[in-house]
Simulated assay, not measured.
Amino acid sequence: MDRVTDTKTPSVEAVRAALSGVRDPEIHRPITDLGMVKDIQVHPDGGVSVGVYLTIAACPLRDRITQDVTTAVAAVPGVTSVRVDLDVMSDEQRAELRRSLRGDAAEPRIPFSEPGSLTRVYCVASGKGGVGKSSVTVNLAVAMAARGLSVGIVDADIYGHSVPRMLGTTDRPTRIEEKMIMPVQAAGVKVMSIGMFTPGNTPVVWRGPMLHRALQQFLAEVFWGDLDILLLDLPPGTGDVAISVAQMLPTAEILVVTTPQQAASEVAERAGAIALQTRQRLAGVIENMSWLELPDGTRMEVFGSGGGAAVAESLSRSLGAEVPLLGQIPLDPRLRESGDTGTPLVLTDPEAPAAAVLREIATRLSTRARGLAGRMLSVTPAGR
Rank of each mutant, 00 (worst) to 15 (best):
181 I>M: 15
51 G>T: 07
355 A>H: 02
132 G>L: 10
127 G>V: 04
367 T>N: 09
74 A>H: 04
314 S>M: 03
335 L>Y: 01
272 G>F: 11
37 V>A: 03
176 I>M: 11
18 A>V: 05
350 P>C: 06
113 S>A: 15
163 V>M: 01
344 P>A: 00
196 M>D: 13
204 V>H: 08
113 S>L: 10
158 I>E: 02
8 K>C: 02
81 S>V: 00
54 L>K: 09
384 R>S: 12
338 S>D: 00
157 D>T: 03
356 A>P: 07
295 P>Y: 01
168 G>H: 06
122 Y>N: 02
8 K>I: 08
140 L>T: 03
200 G>P: 06
161 H>C: 05
373 A>P: 08
261 Q>E: 12
346 V>L: 07
137 T>F: 03
307 G>F: 02
78 G>M: 12
238 T>S: 14
69 V>K: 07
211 L>A: 13
84 V>C: 05
209 P>C: 05
29 R>L: 13
171 D>N: 15
85 D>A: 15
264 A>W: 06
184 V>M: 07
219 L>E: 06
35 G>M: 04
281 R>E: 03
259 T>C: 09
375 R>F: 09
342 G>W: 01
334 R>L: 09
23 R>D: 06
295 P>W: 02
111 P>Y: 11
246 A>L: 13
311 V>S: 09
110 I>D: 11
268 A>R: 05
65 I>G: 07
326 L>R: 01
218 F>H: 11
146 A>H: 11
82 V>P: 02
323 V>H: 12
187 A>M: 11
105 A>D: 15
131 V>G: 12
65 I>V: 15
256 V>Q: 07
162 S>V: 02
129 G>R: 09
287 E>G: 08
67 Q>W: 01
278 T>Y: 04
150 S>F: 10
362 A>Q: 04
151 V>C: 12
353 P>Y: 00
80 T>V: 06
207 R>Q: 00
265 S>F: 08
372 L>C: 02
270 R>E: 01
360 E>T: 14
13 E>S: 15
218 F>L: 06
